[in-house]
Amino acid sequence: MMKVLTANRLTDGIAVWLGANGRWLERIDHALIARHREAVDALEQAGQSAFHDNLIVDVAVIDVDEVDGEIYPIRLRERIRAKGPTFRTDLGKQAEFQQASAA
Protein backbone atom coordinates (compact mmCIF):
# COMPACT_ATOMS: atom_id res chain seq x y z
CA MET A 1 0.00 0.00 0.00
CA MET A 2 1.40 3.37 -1.03
CA LYS A 3 -0.62 6.54 -0.97
CA VAL A 4 -0.07 10.28 -1.10
CA LEU A 5 -2.36 13.19 -0.31
CA THR A 6 -3.30 15.62 -3.05
CA ALA A 7 -5.59 18.63 -3.44
CA ASN A 8 -5.94 21.90 -5.30
CA ARG A 9 -4.83 25.12 -3.68
CA LEU A 10 -7.77 27.37 -2.81
CA THR A 11 -6.41 30.66 -4.13
CA ASP A 12 -5.37 29.55 -7.60
CA GLY A 13 -6.59 25.98 -7.98
CA ILE A 14 -3.09 24.65 -8.68
CA ALA A 15 -2.58 20.93 -7.95
CA VAL A 16 -0.57 20.31 -4.80
CA TRP A 17 0.66 17.35 -2.74
CA LEU A 18 1.39 17.12 0.96
CA GLY A 19 5.12 16.95 1.58
CA ALA A 20 7.06 15.19 4.31
CA ASN A 21 7.74 18.58 5.85
CA GLY A 22 3.99 19.15 6.27
CA ARG A 23 3.84 21.75 3.53
CA TRP A 24 1.79 21.65 0.36
CA LEU A 25 4.14 21.20 -2.58
CA GLU A 26 3.54 22.15 -6.20
CA ARG A 27 5.12 18.94 -7.43
CA ILE A 28 4.60 15.34 -6.48
CA ASP A 29 8.27 14.35 -6.25
CA HIS A 30 8.67 14.94 -2.55
CA ALA A 31 5.18 14.03 -1.44
CA LEU A 32 4.88 12.11 1.79
CA ILE A 33 4.17 8.45 1.06
CA ALA A 34 1.91 6.61 3.48
CA ARG A 35 2.79 2.94 3.57
CA HIS A 36 0.37 1.57 6.17
CA ARG A 37 -3.14 2.17 7.45
CA GLU A 38 -2.20 4.49 10.31
CA ALA A 39 -0.13 6.65 8.00
CA VAL A 40 -3.05 6.88 5.56
CA ASP A 41 -5.33 7.91 8.41
CA ALA A 42 -2.84 10.61 9.31
CA LEU A 43 -2.84 11.84 5.70
CA GLU A 44 -6.61 11.98 5.68
CA GLN A 45 -6.60 13.91 8.89
CA ALA A 46 -4.03 16.35 7.55
CA GLY A 47 -6.23 16.84 4.47
CA GLN A 48 -9.31 17.51 6.59
CA SER A 49 -7.43 19.97 8.68
CA ALA A 50 -5.99 21.88 5.69
CA PHE A 51 -9.44 21.93 4.09
CA HIS A 52 -10.93 23.44 7.23
CA ASP A 53 -8.08 25.93 7.36
CA ASN A 54 -9.11 27.05 3.84
CA LEU A 55 -5.76 26.21 2.31
CA ILE A 56 -6.91 23.59 -0.18
CA VAL A 57 -10.00 22.08 -1.82
CA ASP A 58 -10.84 18.79 -3.55
CA VAL A 59 -8.60 16.83 -1.23
CA ALA A 60 -7.99 13.15 -2.00
CA VAL A 61 -5.73 10.30 -1.00
CA ILE A 62 -4.44 8.62 -4.16
CA ASP A 63 -2.68 5.35 -4.94
CA VAL A 64 0.91 5.57 -6.06
CA ASP A 65 3.79 3.29 -6.86
CA GLU A 66 7.51 3.87 -6.73
CA VAL A 67 9.29 3.42 -10.03
CA ASP A 68 13.06 3.89 -10.07
CA GLY A 69 12.77 5.72 -6.79
CA GLU A 70 10.18 8.15 -8.09
CA ILE A 71 6.52 8.51 -7.22
CA TYR A 72 4.26 7.17 -9.95
CA PRO A 73 0.48 7.69 -9.53
CA ILE A 74 -1.48 4.59 -10.48
CA ARG A 75 -4.31 6.39 -12.29
CA LEU A 76 -3.70 8.26 -15.52
CA ARG A 77 -5.83 11.10 -14.16
CA GLU A 78 -3.35 11.63 -11.34
CA ARG A 79 -0.35 11.31 -13.64
CA ILE A 80 -1.86 14.07 -15.79
CA ARG A 81 -2.44 16.24 -12.71
CA ALA A 82 1.19 15.71 -11.73
CA LYS A 83 2.56 16.71 -15.15
CA GLY A 84 0.06 18.76 -17.17
CA PRO A 85 -1.90 18.22 -20.39
CA THR A 86 -0.30 15.34 -22.31
CA PHE A 87 -0.42 17.17 -25.65
CA ARG A 88 0.99 20.46 -24.34
CA THR A 89 4.28 19.87 -22.64
CA ASP A 90 4.73 23.64 -22.48
CA LEU A 91 2.00 23.82 -19.82
CA GLY A 92 1.62 22.62 -16.26
CA LYS A 93 4.17 21.08 -13.92
CA GLN A 94 6.11 19.46 -16.75
CA ALA A 95 6.89 22.93 -18.07
CA GLU A 96 7.38 24.66 -14.75
CA PHE A 97 9.62 22.01 -13.25
CA GLN A 98 11.87 20.56 -15.91
CA GLN A 99 12.66 17.45 -13.89
CA ALA A 100 9.08 16.66 -13.00
CA SER A 101 9.11 12.94 -13.06
CA ALA A 102 5.68 11.66 -12.18
CA ALA A 103 4.67 10.06 -15.44
Partner: peptide, 28 residues
Protein backbone atom coordinates in the same frame (compact mmCIF):
# COMPACT_ATOMS: atom_id res chain seq x y z
CA UNK B 1 -14.97 36.24 1.99
CA UNK B 2 -13.96 32.80 0.78
CA UNK B 3 -10.26 33.69 0.61
CA UNK B 4 -10.38 35.17 4.09
CA UNK B 5 -12.01 32.00 5.38
CA UNK B 6 -15.24 33.73 6.28
CA UNK B 7 -17.28 31.28 4.21
CA UNK B 8 -16.71 27.57 3.71
CA UNK B 9 -16.12 25.73 0.46
CA UNK B 10 -19.53 24.10 0.76
CA UNK B 11 -21.17 27.52 0.89
CA UNK B 12 -18.94 29.03 -1.77
CA UNK B 13 -18.94 26.30 -4.43
CA UNK B 14 -22.51 26.92 -5.65
CA UNK B 15 -21.77 30.65 -5.74
CA UNK B 16 -18.69 30.31 -7.91
CA UNK B 17 -20.50 27.85 -10.19
CA UNK B 18 -23.29 30.39 -10.66
CA UNK B 19 -20.57 32.58 -12.12
CA UNK B 20 -19.04 29.96 -14.38
CA UNK B 21 -16.05 29.09 -12.19
CA UNK B 22 -15.33 25.35 -12.04
CA UNK B 23 -12.40 23.49 -10.48
CA UNK B 24 -10.68 21.13 -12.90
CA UNK B 25 -7.60 18.92 -12.71
CA UNK B 26 -4.86 21.54 -12.92
CA UNK B 27 -6.60 24.75 -11.94
CA UNK B 28 -9.90 26.59 -11.91
Amino acid sequence: RRLSGEITEDAFKPLRLMNGVYLQLHAY
